[in-house]
Design a protein around this nucleic acid. Sequence first.
DNA 1: AGATATATTGCGGATATATGCAATTTTAAA
DNA 2: TTTAAAATTGCATATATCCGCAATATATCT
Lengths: 249, 249
Amino acid sequence: MLKKERHEYILNLISRDNRIYVTSLSNELGISDDTLRRDLTELDNKGLLTKVHGGAIAKSGISIQFTDRINTAMDKKQQMASKVIPLFKNGDVILLDGGTSNLAVIRQLPKELELTIFTNSFPIVNELFNRPNIELNFLGGKVFSSSQVTVGVTVFQALQTINPDWVLVGISDVHPEKGLTCPDREEALIKRAMIERGNKRLILADSHKLNTARTYQVASLEDIDFIVTENNKIDYIKNNWPKYSYDVI
Amino acid sequence: MLKKERHEYILNLISRDNRIYVTSLSNELGISDDTLRRDLTELDNKGLLTKVHGGAIAKSGISIQFTDRINTAMDKKQQMASKVIPLFKNGDVILLDGGTSNLAVIRQLPKELELTIFTNSFPIVNELFNRPNIELNFLGGKVFSSSQVTVGVTVFQALQTINPDWVLVGISDVHPEKGLTCPDREEALIKRAMIERGNKRLILADSHKLNTARTYQVASLEDIDFIVTENNKIDYIKNNWPKYSYDVI
DNA sequence: AGATATATTGCGGATATATGCAATTTTAAA
DNA sequence: TTTAAAATTGCATATATCCGCAATATATCT
Protein backbone atom coordinates (compact mmCIF):
# COMPACT_ATOMS: atom_id res chain seq x y z
CA MET A 1 0.00 0.00 0.00
CA LEU A 2 1.33 3.40 -0.95
CA LYS A 3 1.67 6.06 1.68
CA LYS A 4 -0.73 8.29 -0.17
CA GLU A 5 -3.30 5.52 -0.32
CA ARG A 6 -2.99 5.04 3.39
CA HIS A 7 -3.61 8.72 3.86
CA GLU A 8 -6.77 8.53 1.79
CA TYR A 9 -7.86 5.50 3.73
CA ILE A 10 -7.31 7.27 7.02
CA LEU A 11 -9.19 10.35 5.90
CA ASN A 12 -12.11 8.29 4.69
CA LEU A 13 -12.25 6.50 8.02
CA ILE A 14 -12.13 9.80 9.84
CA SER A 15 -14.91 11.29 7.80
CA ARG A 16 -17.01 8.18 8.40
CA ASP A 17 -16.42 7.62 12.11
CA ASN A 18 -15.06 11.01 13.15
CA ARG A 19 -12.23 9.25 14.96
CA ILE A 20 -9.55 6.63 14.62
CA TYR A 21 -7.38 4.82 17.19
CA VAL A 22 -3.70 4.38 16.51
CA THR A 23 -3.23 0.87 17.84
CA SER A 24 -6.25 -0.73 16.23
CA LEU A 25 -5.73 0.96 12.89
CA SER A 26 -2.03 0.16 12.73
CA ASN A 27 -2.95 -3.47 13.24
CA GLU A 28 -5.60 -3.33 10.58
CA LEU A 29 -3.19 -1.79 8.09
CA GLY A 30 -0.28 -4.01 9.08
CA ILE A 31 2.11 -1.17 9.79
CA SER A 32 3.86 -0.05 12.95
CA ASP A 33 2.35 2.48 15.31
CA ASP A 34 5.22 4.80 14.50
CA THR A 35 4.40 4.93 10.83
CA LEU A 36 0.76 5.57 11.48
CA ARG A 37 1.59 8.31 13.95
CA ARG A 38 3.81 9.93 11.38
CA ASP A 39 0.95 9.76 8.90
CA LEU A 40 -1.35 11.45 11.37
CA THR A 41 1.20 14.15 12.08
CA GLU A 42 1.48 14.88 8.38
CA LEU A 43 -2.27 14.99 7.87
CA ASP A 44 -2.65 17.18 10.91
CA ASN A 45 -0.07 19.60 9.53
CA LYS A 46 -2.04 19.76 6.32
CA GLY A 47 -5.08 20.64 8.41
CA LEU A 48 -7.02 17.55 7.41
CA LEU A 49 -7.56 16.11 10.87
CA THR A 50 -6.73 16.78 14.48
CA LYS A 51 -4.24 14.51 16.15
CA VAL A 52 -5.04 13.64 19.74
CA HIS A 53 -3.58 11.32 22.33
CA GLY A 54 -4.46 7.82 21.21
CA GLY A 55 -5.53 8.63 17.67
CA ALA A 56 -7.10 11.40 15.67
CA ILE A 57 -10.45 13.08 15.25
CA ALA A 58 -12.18 14.89 12.43
CA LYS A 59 -11.84 18.59 11.89
CA SER A 60 -15.05 20.41 11.23
CA GLY A 61 -15.25 21.61 7.69
CA ILE A 62 -13.09 18.74 6.55
CA SER A 63 -11.77 18.88 3.03
CA ILE A 64 -13.58 16.77 0.49
CA GLN A 65 -10.50 16.49 -1.62
CA PHE A 66 -10.58 12.76 -1.27
CA THR A 67 -13.18 10.42 -2.65
CA ASP A 68 -16.13 9.67 -0.50
CA ARG A 69 -16.86 6.27 -1.95
CA ILE A 70 -16.87 4.54 1.43
CA ASN A 71 -18.05 7.52 3.38
CA THR A 72 -21.14 6.41 5.24
CA ALA A 73 -21.45 9.66 7.15
CA MET A 74 -22.48 10.86 3.73
CA ASP A 75 -25.63 8.76 3.97
CA LYS A 76 -26.92 10.83 6.82
CA LYS A 77 -26.05 13.96 4.96
CA GLN A 78 -27.97 12.77 1.96
CA GLN A 79 -30.91 12.05 4.18
CA MET A 80 -30.71 15.59 5.54
CA ALA A 81 -30.26 17.03 2.07
CA SER A 82 -33.41 15.38 0.79
CA LYS A 83 -35.43 17.32 3.33
CA VAL A 84 -34.11 20.61 2.01
CA ILE A 85 -34.77 20.12 -1.70
CA PRO A 86 -38.59 20.49 -1.56
CA LEU A 87 -38.25 23.99 -0.13
CA PHE A 88 -36.85 25.41 -3.35
CA LYS A 89 -38.86 26.59 -6.33
CA ASN A 90 -37.96 27.90 -9.77
CA GLY A 91 -36.29 31.27 -9.74
CA ASP A 92 -34.99 31.07 -6.17
CA VAL A 93 -31.64 32.58 -5.33
CA ILE A 94 -29.59 30.45 -2.97
CA LEU A 95 -26.42 31.19 -1.07
CA LEU A 96 -24.30 28.26 0.09
CA ASP A 97 -21.07 27.98 2.00
CA GLY A 98 -18.61 25.08 1.87
CA GLY A 99 -18.84 21.73 3.57
CA THR A 100 -20.04 18.29 2.68
CA SER A 101 -23.61 18.84 3.85
CA ASN A 102 -24.19 21.54 1.29
CA LEU A 103 -22.48 19.41 -1.28
CA ALA A 104 -25.02 16.70 -0.59
CA VAL A 105 -27.82 19.21 -1.15
CA ILE A 106 -26.33 20.31 -4.46
CA ARG A 107 -26.02 16.75 -5.65
CA GLN A 108 -29.70 16.14 -5.09
CA LEU A 109 -30.97 19.21 -6.92
CA PRO A 110 -33.34 18.12 -9.69
CA LYS A 111 -31.90 18.78 -13.13
CA GLU A 112 -34.87 20.86 -14.24
CA LEU A 113 -35.00 23.21 -11.26
CA GLU A 114 -34.00 26.74 -12.29
CA LEU A 115 -31.95 28.45 -9.63
CA THR A 116 -29.40 31.17 -9.14
CA ILE A 117 -26.65 30.01 -6.84
CA PHE A 118 -23.98 31.99 -5.03
CA THR A 119 -21.17 30.20 -3.25
CA ASN A 120 -17.61 30.54 -2.02
CA SER A 121 -16.92 26.81 -2.25
CA PHE A 122 -14.83 25.29 -5.02
CA PRO A 123 -16.21 21.75 -4.65
CA ILE A 124 -19.72 23.12 -5.07
CA VAL A 125 -18.83 24.97 -8.25
CA ASN A 126 -17.19 21.85 -9.52
CA GLU A 127 -20.37 19.93 -8.93
CA LEU A 128 -22.49 22.49 -10.79
CA PHE A 129 -20.50 22.85 -13.98
CA ASN A 130 -22.59 21.65 -16.89
CA ARG A 131 -25.93 22.32 -15.24
CA PRO A 132 -27.73 24.47 -17.82
CA ASN A 133 -30.60 25.53 -15.57
CA ILE A 134 -28.41 26.94 -12.89
CA GLU A 135 -26.95 30.40 -12.98
CA LEU A 136 -23.82 30.09 -10.97
CA ASN A 137 -21.89 32.88 -9.25
CA PHE A 138 -18.71 32.58 -7.33
CA LEU A 139 -17.73 34.82 -4.43
CA GLY A 140 -14.09 35.71 -4.89
CA GLY A 141 -11.56 36.22 -2.16
CA LYS A 142 -8.51 34.77 -0.49
CA VAL A 143 -8.33 31.04 -1.08
CA PHE A 144 -8.44 28.96 2.09
CA SER A 145 -6.94 25.72 0.84
CA SER A 146 -7.78 23.34 3.61
CA SER A 147 -11.51 23.98 3.35
CA GLN A 148 -11.47 24.74 -0.36
CA VAL A 149 -13.41 27.95 0.03
CA THR A 150 -12.63 31.65 -0.24
CA VAL A 151 -12.55 33.89 2.83
CA GLY A 152 -11.66 37.41 3.76
CA VAL A 153 -12.94 40.89 3.29
CA THR A 154 -13.50 40.46 -0.45
CA VAL A 155 -16.03 37.73 0.14
CA PHE A 156 -17.60 39.89 2.78
CA GLN A 157 -17.97 42.79 0.37
CA ALA A 158 -19.37 40.60 -2.37
CA LEU A 159 -21.98 39.35 0.07
CA GLN A 160 -23.22 42.86 0.73
CA THR A 161 -24.50 43.09 -2.84
CA ILE A 162 -26.82 40.10 -2.77
CA ASN A 163 -30.13 39.25 -1.12
CA PRO A 164 -30.69 35.54 -1.54
CA ASP A 165 -34.01 33.88 -0.85
CA TRP A 166 -32.21 31.09 0.98
CA VAL A 167 -28.98 30.81 2.89
CA LEU A 168 -27.65 27.33 3.62
CA VAL A 169 -24.84 27.05 6.13
CA GLY A 170 -23.21 23.86 7.31
CA ILE A 171 -22.29 23.86 10.96
CA SER A 172 -20.88 21.10 13.09
CA ASP A 173 -21.28 22.77 16.45
CA VAL A 174 -24.73 23.78 17.62
CA HIS A 175 -25.59 24.56 21.19
CA PRO A 176 -28.94 25.65 22.68
CA GLU A 177 -27.53 28.74 24.42
CA LYS A 178 -24.28 29.40 22.61
CA GLY A 179 -25.88 28.99 19.22
CA LEU A 180 -23.79 28.19 16.16
CA THR A 181 -20.02 28.21 16.59
CA CYS A 182 -17.00 27.08 14.63
CA PRO A 183 -13.29 26.68 15.32
CA ASP A 184 -11.95 29.04 12.69
CA ARG A 185 -12.35 32.78 12.91
CA GLU A 186 -12.32 33.55 9.20
CA GLU A 187 -14.93 30.94 8.48
CA ALA A 188 -17.06 32.13 11.36
CA LEU A 189 -17.07 35.66 9.98
CA ILE A 190 -18.10 34.53 6.52
CA LYS A 191 -20.86 32.27 7.79
CA ARG A 192 -22.12 35.09 9.96
CA ALA A 193 -22.16 37.53 7.05
CA MET A 194 -24.00 34.99 4.93
CA ILE A 195 -26.66 34.44 7.53
CA GLU A 196 -27.21 38.16 7.81
CA ARG A 197 -27.96 38.45 4.10
CA GLY A 198 -30.51 35.67 3.81
CA ASN A 199 -34.26 35.91 3.65
CA LYS A 200 -34.76 32.39 4.95
CA ARG A 201 -31.86 31.02 6.93
CA LEU A 202 -31.29 27.33 7.08
CA ILE A 203 -28.55 25.49 8.90
CA LEU A 204 -27.45 21.93 8.30
CA ALA A 205 -26.33 20.57 11.64
CA ASP A 206 -23.92 17.98 10.33
CA SER A 207 -22.68 16.99 13.76
CA HIS A 208 -22.81 13.53 15.22
CA LYS A 209 -23.50 15.17 18.52
CA LEU A 210 -25.44 18.23 19.54
CA ASN A 211 -24.79 20.60 22.44
CA THR A 212 -21.22 21.39 21.45
CA ALA A 213 -19.62 24.79 21.09
CA ARG A 214 -16.33 26.12 19.72
CA THR A 215 -14.41 29.34 19.99
CA TYR A 216 -16.01 31.63 17.42
CA GLN A 217 -19.68 32.48 17.27
CA VAL A 218 -21.49 32.45 13.96
CA ALA A 219 -25.04 33.24 15.03
CA SER A 220 -27.57 32.50 17.72
CA LEU A 221 -30.56 30.24 17.33
CA GLU A 222 -32.84 33.27 17.10
CA ASP A 223 -31.28 34.17 13.76
CA ILE A 224 -32.26 30.88 12.19
CA ASP A 225 -35.41 29.82 10.33
CA PHE A 226 -34.74 26.13 9.81
CA ILE A 227 -32.50 23.61 11.53
CA VAL A 228 -31.96 20.52 9.41
CA THR A 229 -30.79 17.51 11.36
CA GLU A 230 -31.00 13.75 11.51
CA ASN A 231 -34.49 12.40 11.99
CA ASN A 232 -33.78 10.89 15.38
CA LYS A 233 -32.70 14.21 16.82
CA ILE A 234 -35.70 16.27 15.81
CA ASP A 235 -37.79 15.48 18.88
CA TYR A 236 -34.90 16.02 21.24
CA ILE A 237 -34.32 19.52 19.93
CA LYS A 238 -38.00 20.39 19.90
CA ASN A 239 -38.41 19.32 23.52
CA ASN A 240 -35.20 20.59 25.07
CA TRP A 241 -34.06 23.66 23.21
CA PRO A 242 -35.40 27.25 23.56
CA LYS A 243 -38.37 27.78 21.31
CA TYR A 244 -37.59 30.59 18.93
CA SER A 245 -39.23 30.89 15.57
CA TYR A 246 -37.05 28.24 13.95
CA ASP A 247 -38.44 25.04 12.60
CA VAL A 248 -36.69 21.69 12.98
CA ILE A 249 -36.83 19.37 10.01
CA MET B 1 6.17 -1.80 -26.96
CA LEU B 2 6.07 1.83 -27.92
CA LYS B 3 6.15 4.61 -25.39
CA LYS B 4 2.69 5.73 -26.40
CA GLU B 5 1.32 2.24 -25.92
CA ARG B 6 2.94 2.02 -22.54
CA HIS B 7 1.30 5.26 -21.52
CA GLU B 8 -2.10 3.94 -22.59
CA TYR B 9 -1.45 0.77 -20.66
CA ILE B 10 -0.47 2.66 -17.54
CA LEU B 11 -3.51 4.91 -17.69
CA ASN B 12 -5.79 1.93 -18.11
CA LEU B 13 -4.27 0.25 -15.10
CA ILE B 14 -4.63 3.41 -13.07
CA SER B 15 -8.24 3.89 -13.97
CA ARG B 16 -8.92 0.25 -13.10
CA ASP B 17 -6.97 -0.10 -9.86
CA ASN B 18 -6.51 3.52 -8.83
CA ARG B 19 -2.83 2.78 -8.27
CA ILE B 20 0.30 1.27 -9.72
CA TYR B 21 3.63 0.35 -8.17
CA VAL B 22 6.83 1.20 -9.98
CA THR B 23 8.80 -1.93 -9.22
CA SER B 24 6.13 -4.47 -10.00
CA LEU B 25 4.94 -2.73 -13.15
CA SER B 26 8.42 -2.23 -14.52
CA ASN B 27 8.95 -5.94 -14.12
CA GLU B 28 5.69 -6.74 -15.80
CA LEU B 29 6.51 -4.50 -18.74
CA GLY B 30 10.13 -5.57 -18.94
CA ILE B 31 11.53 -2.07 -18.73
CA SER B 32 13.74 -0.37 -16.19
CA ASP B 33 12.36 1.48 -13.20
CA ASP B 34 13.79 4.70 -14.56
CA THR B 35 11.89 4.49 -17.81
CA LEU B 36 8.66 3.82 -16.02
CA ARG B 37 9.33 6.69 -13.66
CA ARG B 38 9.94 8.97 -16.59
CA ASP B 39 6.62 7.84 -18.06
CA LEU B 40 4.89 8.61 -14.82
CA THR B 41 6.49 12.02 -14.61
CA GLU B 42 5.24 12.84 -18.09
CA LEU B 43 1.73 11.65 -17.37
CA ASP B 44 1.73 13.56 -14.12
CA ASN B 45 2.75 16.73 -15.93
CA LYS B 46 -0.13 16.24 -18.31
CA GLY B 47 -2.36 16.01 -15.27
CA LEU B 48 -3.44 12.45 -15.97
CA LEU B 49 -2.29 10.86 -12.74
CA THR B 50 -0.52 11.72 -9.52
CA LYS B 51 2.99 10.43 -9.03
CA VAL B 52 3.80 9.42 -5.48
CA HIS B 53 6.71 7.76 -3.75
CA GLY B 54 6.62 4.15 -4.87
CA GLY B 55 4.23 4.51 -7.77
CA ALA B 56 1.28 6.57 -8.86
CA ILE B 57 -2.39 6.97 -8.02
CA ALA B 58 -5.43 8.20 -9.85
CA LYS B 59 -6.19 11.88 -9.67
CA SER B 60 -8.73 12.42 -6.95
CA GLY B 61 -12.25 13.75 -6.99
CA ILE B 62 -12.32 17.43 -7.59
CA SER B 63 -9.48 17.63 -10.01
CA ILE B 64 -10.85 15.26 -12.61
CA GLN B 65 -13.44 17.64 -14.00
CA PHE B 66 -11.09 20.53 -13.81
CA THR B 67 -8.31 18.89 -15.71
CA ASP B 68 -9.90 16.53 -18.21
CA ARG B 69 -10.06 19.08 -20.96
CA ILE B 70 -6.31 19.42 -21.11
CA ASN B 71 -5.37 19.07 -24.71
CA THR B 72 -2.52 17.45 -26.46
CA ALA B 73 -0.43 20.43 -27.48
CA MET B 74 0.74 20.49 -23.90
CA ASP B 75 4.35 19.75 -24.79
CA LYS B 76 4.72 23.00 -26.69
CA LYS B 77 2.97 24.84 -23.94
CA GLN B 78 5.37 23.42 -21.42
CA GLN B 79 8.22 24.60 -23.56
CA MET B 80 6.69 28.08 -23.62
CA ALA B 81 5.98 28.02 -19.92
CA SER B 82 9.56 27.25 -19.06
CA LYS B 83 10.59 30.53 -20.65
CA VAL B 84 8.26 32.47 -18.40
CA ILE B 85 9.26 31.01 -15.05
CA PRO B 86 12.71 32.71 -14.80
CA LEU B 87 11.05 36.13 -14.96
CA PHE B 88 9.43 35.76 -11.56
CA LYS B 89 11.06 36.49 -8.22
CA ASN B 90 9.98 36.12 -4.62
CA GLY B 91 7.21 38.48 -3.64
CA ASP B 92 5.86 39.07 -7.13
CA VAL B 93 2.14 39.50 -7.63
CA ILE B 94 0.84 37.73 -10.72
CA LEU B 95 -2.51 37.91 -12.46
CA LEU B 96 -3.49 35.00 -14.70
CA ASP B 97 -6.53 34.28 -16.79
CA GLY B 98 -7.76 30.84 -17.81
CA GLY B 99 -6.43 28.61 -20.50
CA THR B 100 -4.06 25.72 -20.73
CA SER B 101 -0.99 27.85 -21.43
CA ASN B 102 -1.26 29.53 -18.09
CA LEU B 103 -1.91 26.18 -16.49
CA ALA B 104 1.38 24.97 -17.89
CA VAL B 105 3.12 27.96 -16.33
CA ILE B 106 1.53 27.25 -12.97
CA ARG B 107 2.62 23.64 -13.06
CA GLN B 108 6.22 24.61 -13.56
CA LEU B 109 6.42 27.10 -10.73
CA PRO B 110 9.18 26.01 -8.34
CA LYS B 111 7.81 24.88 -5.00
CA GLU B 112 9.87 27.36 -3.05
CA LEU B 113 8.97 30.49 -5.03
CA GLU B 114 6.85 32.84 -2.95
CA LEU B 115 4.16 34.53 -5.00
CA THR B 116 0.79 36.16 -4.71
CA ILE B 117 -1.51 34.97 -7.43
CA PHE B 118 -4.82 36.36 -8.64
CA THR B 119 -6.91 34.42 -11.09
CA ASN B 120 -10.42 33.87 -12.38
CA SER B 121 -9.71 30.32 -13.49
CA PHE B 122 -10.91 27.29 -11.58
CA PRO B 123 -8.36 24.87 -13.04
CA ILE B 124 -5.58 27.16 -11.91
CA VAL B 125 -6.89 27.34 -8.37
CA ASN B 126 -7.22 23.60 -8.35
CA GLU B 127 -3.61 23.23 -9.34
CA LEU B 128 -2.44 25.56 -6.59
CA PHE B 129 -4.23 24.06 -3.62
CA ASN B 130 -1.68 22.84 -1.09
CA ARG B 131 1.10 25.14 -2.24
CA PRO B 132 2.19 26.74 1.02
CA ASN B 133 4.35 29.46 -0.54
CA ILE B 134 1.60 30.83 -2.72
CA GLU B 135 -0.98 33.28 -1.54
CA LEU B 136 -3.91 32.59 -3.75
CA ASN B 137 -6.80 34.92 -4.52
CA PHE B 138 -9.79 34.18 -6.65
CA LEU B 139 -11.68 36.79 -8.65
CA GLY B 140 -15.36 36.09 -8.12
CA GLY B 141 -18.09 36.57 -10.67
CA LYS B 142 -20.51 34.82 -12.95
CA VAL B 143 -19.32 31.31 -13.68
CA PHE B 144 -18.68 30.67 -17.36
CA SER B 145 -18.81 26.89 -17.45
CA SER B 146 -17.39 26.16 -20.85
CA SER B 147 -14.12 27.95 -20.10
CA GLN B 148 -14.16 27.25 -16.38
CA VAL B 149 -13.54 30.86 -15.47
CA THR B 150 -15.56 33.68 -13.99
CA VAL B 151 -16.64 36.65 -16.08
CA GLY B 152 -18.82 39.70 -15.80
CA VAL B 153 -18.84 43.02 -14.09
CA THR B 154 -17.91 41.54 -10.71
CA VAL B 155 -14.60 40.29 -12.04
CA PHE B 156 -14.11 43.65 -13.67
CA GLN B 157 -14.65 45.45 -10.39
CA ALA B 158 -12.38 43.09 -8.50
CA LEU B 159 -9.65 43.79 -11.03
CA GLN B 160 -9.80 47.51 -10.37
CA THR B 161 -8.44 46.93 -6.87
CA ILE B 162 -5.21 45.19 -7.81
CA ASN B 163 -1.91 46.19 -9.42
CA PRO B 164 -0.04 43.03 -10.26
CA ASP B 165 3.60 43.00 -11.24
CA TRP B 166 2.81 40.58 -14.04
CA VAL B 167 -0.23 39.84 -16.14
CA LEU B 168 -0.25 36.58 -18.10
CA VAL B 169 -2.94 36.22 -20.72
CA GLY B 170 -3.37 33.25 -23.01
CA ILE B 171 -4.47 34.16 -26.53
CA SER B 172 -4.96 31.95 -29.53
CA ASP B 173 -5.36 34.70 -32.12
CA VAL B 174 -2.56 37.18 -32.63
CA HIS B 175 -2.22 39.36 -35.68
CA PRO B 176 0.43 42.00 -36.50
CA GLU B 177 -2.11 44.79 -37.19
CA LYS B 178 -5.29 43.64 -35.49
CA GLY B 179 -3.47 42.69 -32.31
CA LEU B 180 -4.94 40.21 -29.85
CA THR B 181 -8.49 39.05 -30.48
CA CYS B 182 -10.78 36.34 -29.23
CA PRO B 183 -14.13 34.89 -30.23
CA ASP B 184 -16.09 35.61 -27.06
CA ARG B 185 -17.07 39.08 -25.97
CA GLU B 186 -17.13 38.45 -22.21
CA GLU B 187 -13.71 36.89 -22.28
CA ALA B 188 -12.34 39.65 -24.44
CA LEU B 189 -13.51 42.25 -21.94
CA ILE B 190 -11.93 40.45 -19.02
CA LYS B 191 -8.64 39.88 -20.77
CA ARG B 192 -8.62 43.53 -21.79
CA ALA B 193 -9.25 44.66 -18.22
CA MET B 194 -6.49 42.38 -16.98
CA ILE B 195 -3.98 43.74 -19.44
CA GLU B 196 -4.82 47.27 -18.38
CA ARG B 197 -3.98 46.49 -14.75
CA GLY B 198 -0.58 44.91 -15.24
CA ASN B 199 2.80 46.41 -14.77
CA LYS B 200 4.46 43.97 -17.16
CA ARG B 201 2.11 42.41 -19.67
CA LEU B 202 2.92 39.05 -21.11
CA ILE B 203 0.90 37.08 -23.60
CA LEU B 204 1.22 33.40 -24.30
CA ALA B 205 0.46 32.96 -27.97
CA ASP B 206 -0.72 29.40 -27.77
CA SER B 207 -1.74 29.29 -31.39
CA HIS B 208 -0.57 26.75 -33.90
CA LYS B 209 -0.75 29.53 -36.42
CA LEU B 210 -0.05 33.24 -36.27
CA ASN B 211 -1.64 36.06 -38.25
CA THR B 212 -5.21 35.18 -37.31
CA ALA B 213 -7.90 37.47 -35.92
CA ARG B 214 -11.37 37.01 -34.39
CA THR B 215 -14.33 39.23 -33.68
CA TYR B 216 -13.51 40.91 -30.38
CA GLN B 217 -10.39 42.88 -29.71
CA VAL B 218 -8.47 42.39 -26.49
CA ALA B 219 -5.51 44.68 -27.00
CA SER B 220 -3.06 45.82 -29.61
CA LEU B 221 0.56 44.79 -29.80
CA GLU B 222 1.60 48.16 -28.41
CA ASP B 223 0.06 47.25 -25.07
CA ILE B 224 2.24 44.21 -24.63
CA ASP B 225 5.67 43.78 -23.04
CA PHE B 226 6.39 40.14 -23.83
CA ILE B 227 5.12 37.73 -26.43
CA VAL B 228 5.86 34.15 -25.51
CA THR B 229 5.73 31.75 -28.41
CA GLU B 230 7.27 28.59 -29.77
CA ASN B 231 10.98 28.80 -30.42
CA ASN B 232 10.68 28.35 -34.15
CA LYS B 233 8.38 31.35 -34.50
CA ILE B 234 10.49 33.88 -32.66
CA ASP B 235 12.53 34.95 -35.66
CA TYR B 236 9.51 35.19 -37.89
CA ILE B 237 7.79 37.60 -35.54
CA LYS B 238 10.90 39.66 -35.00
CA ASN B 239 11.44 40.05 -38.72
CA ASN B 240 7.91 40.56 -39.96
CA TRP B 241 5.86 42.25 -37.27
CA PRO B 242 5.80 45.94 -36.33
CA LYS B 243 8.51 46.72 -33.84
CA TYR B 244 6.91 48.09 -30.72
CA SER B 245 8.52 47.80 -27.34
CA TYR B 246 7.52 44.19 -26.87
CA ASP B 247 10.06 41.45 -26.57
CA VAL B 248 9.61 38.03 -28.15
CA ILE B 249 10.77 35.06 -26.11
C1' DA C 1 20.62 6.66 -48.93
C1' DG C 2 23.56 8.73 -45.82
C1' DA C 3 24.52 12.02 -42.41
C1' DT C 4 22.99 14.57 -38.61
C1' DA C 5 20.05 15.72 -35.06
C1' DT C 6 16.83 14.32 -31.49
C1' DA C 7 14.64 10.97 -28.31
C1' DT C 8 14.57 7.12 -25.61
C1' DT C 9 16.47 3.93 -22.61
C1' DG C 10 19.24 1.59 -19.01
C1' DC C 11 23.01 1.87 -15.82
C1' DG C 12 25.89 3.37 -11.71
C1' DG C 13 26.36 6.13 -8.06
C1' DA C 14 24.71 9.89 -5.07
C1' DT C 15 20.77 11.37 -2.55
C1' DA C 16 16.30 11.14 -0.46
C1' DT C 17 12.40 8.78 1.65
C1' DA C 18 9.92 5.44 4.33
C1' DT C 19 9.78 2.45 7.97
C1' DG C 20 10.59 -0.16 12.18
C1' DC C 21 13.16 -0.64 16.46
C1' DA C 22 14.93 0.80 20.91
C1' DA C 23 15.54 4.24 24.38
C1' DT C 24 13.49 8.10 26.53
C1' DT C 25 9.91 11.32 27.62
C1' DT C 26 5.14 12.58 27.99
C1' DT C 27 0.39 11.79 28.91
C1' DA C 28 -3.72 10.49 31.17
C1' DA C 29 -6.13 7.45 33.95
C1' DA C 30 -6.40 4.82 38.37
C1' DT D 1 1.42 9.80 43.01
C1' DT D 2 1.91 5.88 40.57
C1' DT D 3 1.74 3.30 36.51
C1' DA D 4 0.87 1.70 32.02
C1' DA D 5 -0.03 3.23 27.57
C1' DA D 6 1.21 6.43 24.10
C1' DA D 7 4.32 9.69 21.90
C1' DT D 8 8.75 11.35 20.63
C1' DT D 9 13.45 11.03 19.24
C1' DG D 10 17.50 9.21 17.19
C1' DC D 11 19.20 5.71 14.49
C1' DA D 12 19.78 1.78 11.07
C1' DT D 13 18.20 -0.20 7.03
C1' DA D 14 15.84 -1.09 2.91
C1' DT D 15 13.95 0.91 -0.82
C1' DA D 16 12.93 4.60 -4.10
C1' DT D 17 14.32 8.49 -6.64
C1' DC D 18 17.27 11.49 -9.10
C1' DC D 19 21.13 12.79 -12.15
C1' DG D 20 24.56 12.46 -15.59
C1' DC D 21 26.22 9.59 -19.10
C1' DA D 22 26.67 6.54 -22.80
C1' DA D 23 24.42 3.38 -25.99
C1' DT D 24 20.81 2.70 -28.93
C1' DA D 25 16.90 3.82 -31.55
C1' DT D 26 14.14 7.02 -34.12
C1' DA D 27 13.29 11.10 -36.77
C1' DT D 28 14.69 14.76 -39.95
C1' DC D 29 17.15 16.84 -43.50
C1' DT D 30 19.98 17.25 -47.64
